[in-house]
Design a protein around this nucleic acid. Structure first.
Lengths: 140, 140
DNA sequence: TCCAATCGGACTGATTCGTTCCGATTGGCA
DNA sequence: TGCCAATCGGAACGAATCAGTCCGATTGGA
């Protein structure tokens, strides 16, 4: 029940990005180096994270000189659950909740499993109800 | 955002114990070997878990021949959050939420932190609202 | 008094996580 | 038009935590 450090860093970096996006130039260039220095996250780690977030569709990336990243959507349209899933993979508290995996030997007659899906949904809903805009403190 | 296997096993074993407790003899002896065989959890792992749950106060233990474990409280008075915390430690999604630890260099001016405490509380509340009796399927 | 059964803590191996480094690609400039 | 600098992208390394296993300490009964 603990978030990985990478997910934590991702949230901090995206909130910083959201504040930049809302503070002036709409399509401001956001380089990994810039956000790394601003947030205190080590640069190589920041690069890895930005890449993963871009792969998940939360950021759009541009290569070459003057390239960088940009938020793919409005901060209000990005949920905390999406950020976490982009970094850590699907939110599945137990193995039996994750689709496509059936490793649990007890799965057949397990009486706890249906409750797990409900609990998992509740947690996922709580995380999905928080937007990046809220986290960043941007009122709009 | 994934539960450790040990926590998953603990829930399965405690639900089995709750069903035993409600099914007849009130102070039935529950040996680790018995629950291990019934749930499919490897015996040494089950022993380790039972010990940890007893140390957390969810089970009372008795040594010697004819010893074993017993639920310390009514299944309805044991929450899922307590079980998870007994196995995995405090539920703290980020380091800055956990009391007594201040490792985050950004802590001073971090604008995300107050939101984390709210999110953490919501998740903890969702887990605290589910009782062991509900998980076990015991109506009473 | 001895023995069998059970809990409790210590040790080892494996998997995952976090970090770092180097190559591939692109736009600007002479 | 060719070169260079800046940036993203993926691959490799080290560390920490987790899951699993084993053996010793303690207790009740024969």
């Amino acid at each position: 029940m603990r978030l990985s450090s990478l997910a934590d860093y991702a949230v901090v970096m995206l909130t910083a990005a959201a504040r930049h996006a809302g503070a002036g130039a709409d399509d401001a260039r956001l380089s990994a180096a810039m956000l790394a220095e601003e947030t205190g996250v080590p640069l190589p780690t920041a690069q890895k994270l930005m890449g993963r977030l871009a792969g998940a569709g939360l950021l759009t990336s541009a290569r070459g000189t003057g390239g960088g990243f940009r938020l793919a959507r409005d901060p209000a349209a990005i949920s905390l659950a999406e950020i976490i899933e982009a970094v850590e993979g699907p939110i599945a508290m137990t193995a039996c909740v994750e689709q496509g995996r059936h490793d649990c030997a007890l799965e057949a007659g397990c009486r706890v499993r249906p409750h797990w899906t409900a609990v998992n949904g509740a947690v996922k809903g709580a995380l999905g109800g928080v937007s990046l805009a809220t986290l960043a403190g941007v009122p709009a």
